[in-house]
């Protein structure tokens, strides 16, 4: 099975916008990938004039919030400009291995990369101080700048949402048949690739061990 990868358009945003933007994007992807019975829920963004759809699944909500917390945590600790968060969907397959009699394997069939470019609020501050020297109303230009930037972000967020919908429309065949899903979604994981490279690897490794462990004993 091929793994389709969708690199979403980069969003330039400030720190405090991360949560809302991630929510919107992740939920929108999930709405197209949680193909179990859902009761769609319209959600208005608070910072932007955008309405998106959630699946209305509490577990999913929770997981997404957790991941967003993690991500924000990480961004705070490692203030990089470019950040990525990856949502992968996979199937779990039993595989006969040579070393282990049985092994659970994850077959990734889709990966979404959400690309965020963090901008500091410094801009607004600097322009503020600069202008105050020149006896211009200090707040005004900063406010204006903020609103321009916000509008730009809103537009590109909208674009990203369109991108998701387009991708979903174009690529349908790699999506596994809808089983009687345990939960509403295909198995998924949300990772923060750049986080700490080793940790990501370790995570994978740990997971492999965990899934392999019980069978190794037998």
């Amino acid at each position: 099975m091929n793994c389709e990868v969708c690199q979403l358009k980069e969003l330039e945003l400030e720190h405090f916008e991360v949560r809302e933007v991630l929510r919107c994007v992740l939920h929108t992807i999930f709405f197209h990938r949680a193909l179990g019975l859902v009761r769609p829920k319209d959600v208005d963004l608070e910072l932007f004039d955008i309405t998106y759809v959630q699946c209305g699944d509490l577990d999913l909500d929770k997981k997404i919030e957790e991941k967003i917390d993690q991500f924000i945590d990480r961004v705070e600790k490692h203030p990089n400009k470019k950040n990525q968060i990856c949502l992968s969907f996979y199937e779990v397959k039993n595989k006969q291995g040579t070393w282990f009699p049985k092994k659970l394997e994850r077959l990734y069939w889709e990966q979404w990369y959400i690309n965020l470019n963090m901008v500091q609020q410094l801009k607004a501050h600097s322009s503020k101080s600069h202008h105050s020297k020149v006896v211009v109303d200090p707040g005004e230009s900063a406010v204006e700048e903020t609103s321009i930037r916000r509008a730009a972000l809103e537009a590109s967020l909208r674009e990203v949402l369109f991108q998701i919908i387009e991708f979903v429309n174009e690529k349908k065949d790699h999506v596994p048949p809808i089983p009687n899903l345990d939960g509403i979604s295909f198995p998924y994981e949300i990772t923060i690739p750049g986080s700490s490279d080793s940790a990501f690897g370790m995570d994978m490794f740990k997971r492999m061990l965990q899934t392999g462990h019980p069978t190794m004993l037998s």
Binding site: L35, T51, I165, V168
Partner: peptide
């Protein structure tokens, strides 16, 4: 495919 069509339709309308 139908499900996917409807999902994207649903999301699209709101955009």
């Amino acid at each position: 495919r139908s499900i996917l069509l409807l999902r994207s339709l649903y999301a699209m309308i709101r955009l």
